[in-house]
Structures are given as C-alpha cells and as structure tokens.
Amino acid sequence: MSVAFFIIALLTLLSAVAAMTLRNLIHCALALAFTFAGLAAAYLQLGAQFVGFVQLLVYVGAVAILIVFAVLLTRGREPATQGIFSPKWPVGAAVALGVFGTLAGLLLSSRVLHHEAAAIAQAPVRQIGEQLMTHYIVPLEVLGVLLTAALIGAVILAMHERESDSPPPSKT
C-alpha cells in the first residue's frame, strides 16, 4: 500500500467524518470542501487528471460555496441546546455500519479484485473530448438540458415571494 494513498485516504475520511459530525455548519461545509479536494487528489493518483480537475472546479469551486451560502441563508434562531443528531441516531448509525460491514465483507471475500493494474492507464483530454462529442453526444445534450432546467428551477424555487412573505402558518 503506497504511502501517498494512505495519507490521502486518511485525510479524506477524517474530513468526511468531521463534515458529518461538527456542530458548526460552516465548519461542516469547509470540511466537506476538504473532502472533495482529497477525492480530487485520489483521482489524480489514479491517473484521471481531467476528472480530478473537474472535481475541484465543480465541487470545491461551486458546490461547497453553494452549501456555504445555503447555511448562511438558513441560519435560524434555533436554540443551541438541541442536539445536532436526531433522537433515533442509533438506528441510523446501525444501518450505516451494516452497509459498511456488508460491502467490506463482500470486497474482502471476492477473488477477482485482487489483481494489480497492468499498465499505466491514461485518459488524454483530446480523447475524452472526441468521445464526448461523438459516442456520448446524446447524454451530453441531455445533461445540458438538465442543467438548464435545474438552473431555472433553482432560481424559481429560491426566488423571494412577496405575497407569501407572511409569518409561517401555525402548526396544527
């Protein structure tokens, strides 16, 4: 096991745990940005340069910032005494542990996976571009439509509604 992989995996997992457990939501968002950067490093180590940089650009540059903005916009007057975990957290933790146990058990018991990479795999940008524009052109166009729809949808959802700016309806 190479040292670089071990360090990257450790830092990424630690920051992922931090993103899930810290009390301050801004800290969570920044830990998440670090996790994304760690994953980009893992992609670079695997030889997927283009994907690693796209990961940095999209996740660290856009998604993390988006989450930070959302945190600031929804910072309510919640009493700090409330716990950050839901009351039924042991159930959730047990489910997650179970999932991990199953996955890890399957991984370690499988025989096909225990082989090393044969040659250095490379993904030249030119080849990625050519494939995107020929073989994957329909998914690419669909993705474009999806992103446009998401853009318009997000703007409409988050747009300030003047009429309904009244106090929240009382819960029954």
């Binding site: 950067a37 650009l57 940008v125």
Partner: peptide
C-alpha cells in the same frame, strides 16, 4: 495535458 482547466480549478479555492 489539461493546464487551462487546472488553472481555473485551483483558482476556485
């Protein structure tokens, strides 16, 4: 190989 992308990706930080 993807230098311009690298430039904008690190700029995001």
């Amino acid at each position: 190989d993807s230098g311009v992308l690298f430039f904008f990706a690190v700029g995001a930080a």
